[in-house]
Design a protein around this nucleic acid. Structure first.
Length: 314
RNA sequence: CGCGGGGUAGAGAAGUGGCAUCUCGCCGGGCUCAUAAUCCGGAGAUCGCAGGUUCGAAUCCUGCCCCCGCAA
């Protein structure tokens, strides 16, 4: 059921990961068929350094939409101009778009951002939401300007979350963002929506996540570490070190316990579960992976590495 | 040729040239009011695949397959 009006609109979609792909799919399904897609270059991935296309590229290929993958988007300026777009829709692209390009489309450029702006501007809003243990989050669609996640708001949707990991939250917010986009797009194009400037004094910013951010500091409380595990799944994933080797930790349970152990001490609970003392309370480990090994359950880990009991993780 | 670790019983691990081991699980039995308790007994492995060296290979050499850590 494609509406003609949608087909006449010249949209360029810009985005790279799964989050963007989900939104692109909703656009297409609703009849907003982009005339071109801009996405990140194929990246070498895996042990064999095989080049893999971005989720957005895969979806665009399937729908036979022309694809651009510039190293730097500024190099694409003249091509974009030639496409004569009415609108740019951007979600999680990975590069800052210069004003020169934002100014090209008649209706400007929209950005779908997975947080309640002006809170959590920047590259890792989803992880930061989980890390901080927020119970409320959402998506915001803004009209882009030259500053990052700074433009006026066209629409916003809130949701309540409980214990959830980054993968799940990304998916939920992408769906939500896609729906919101479809909802506001016709109104915006008809000029029925007044962009509302953000309250810049309340703005907060998120950082790029680095591999090392996934390292556990056992001085922290069990609650904080548990949130970290959900936030950093599947990347960079959370780890600790044993004898200079990495132990990845995938699943844990918080154990409320008054212990006098040094944080990082491995011990067995009354139920014979593998647990680690934290700065406050403790964590029961459920699924781990030792460097060079497969992902295994904690029980298997104890059987295979009995010396781990009373070992102190640093 | 990006760097590195690994493949041994259902699971997890020891074992660097000389009898195939350990923990858990599983099966049978004992003890117990009871058990994620404990005791006795048992089954289960062509040591990833193929070739080579050797009196003798899980172990050394060659090739192949598969898995994983780093690396975005």
């Amino acid at each position: 059921m494609l509406k003609l009006i949608n087909q006449n609109l010249r949209i360029i979609f810009i985005g790279t990961p799964e989050f963007a792909a989900i939104i692109l799919e909703k656009l297409i399904k609703s009849g907003y068929f982009p005339i071109a897609v801009v996405t990140g270059p194929d990246k070498p991935s895996g042990r064999k350094q095989i080049l893999v296309p971005s989720p957005v590229k895969v979806l665009a290929e399937k729908n036979k939409i022309p694809i651009f993958q510039p190293e730097k988007i500024i190099n694409l300026k003249s091509e974009i101009k030639n496409l004569d777009p009415d609108l740019i829709i951007l979600a999680a692209y990975g590069q800052i778009i210069p004003k020169d390009i934002l100014d090209i489309p008649r209706y400007g450029a929209l950005n779908i951002h997975p947080s309640l702006l002006p809170k959590y501007r920047g590259p890792s809003p989803i992880q930061t939401t989980i890390l901080n243990g927020d119970s409320k989050t959402g998506v915001t669609i803004i009209l882009m300007d030259e500053k990052i996640d700074h433009g006026p708001i066209l629409g916003q949707k809130k949701i309540i979350i409980n214990k959830i990991d980054s993968v799940e939250l990304t998916k939920i917010l992408a769906e939500l963002g896609g729906d919101l986009l479809i909802e506001i797009l016709p109104k915006y194009l008809k000029g029925e929506i007044k962009p509302k400037p953000q309250n810049h004094s309340q703005a907060t910013y998120t950082k790029f996540i680095k591999k090392e951010d996934g390292r556990i500091n056992w001085q922290k409380s069990a609650e904080e570490i548990e949130r970290m595990i959900r936030a950093y799944y599947p990347w960079p994933s959370v780890f600790t070190k044993i004898k200079n080797k990495i132990l990845k930790i995938f699943k844990v349970k918080i154990l409320k316990i008054n212990h006098k152990k040094e944080p990082g001490t491995v011990f067995l609970t009354e139920k014979k579960e593998l647990a680690v003392a934290c700065g406050q309370d403790a964590l029961v480990l459920e699924e781990v992976q030792f460097e060079g090994k497969k992902r295994i359950t904690a029980q298997e880990f104890i059987n295979g590495y009995p010396w781990i009991i009373n070992f102190i993780l640093k």
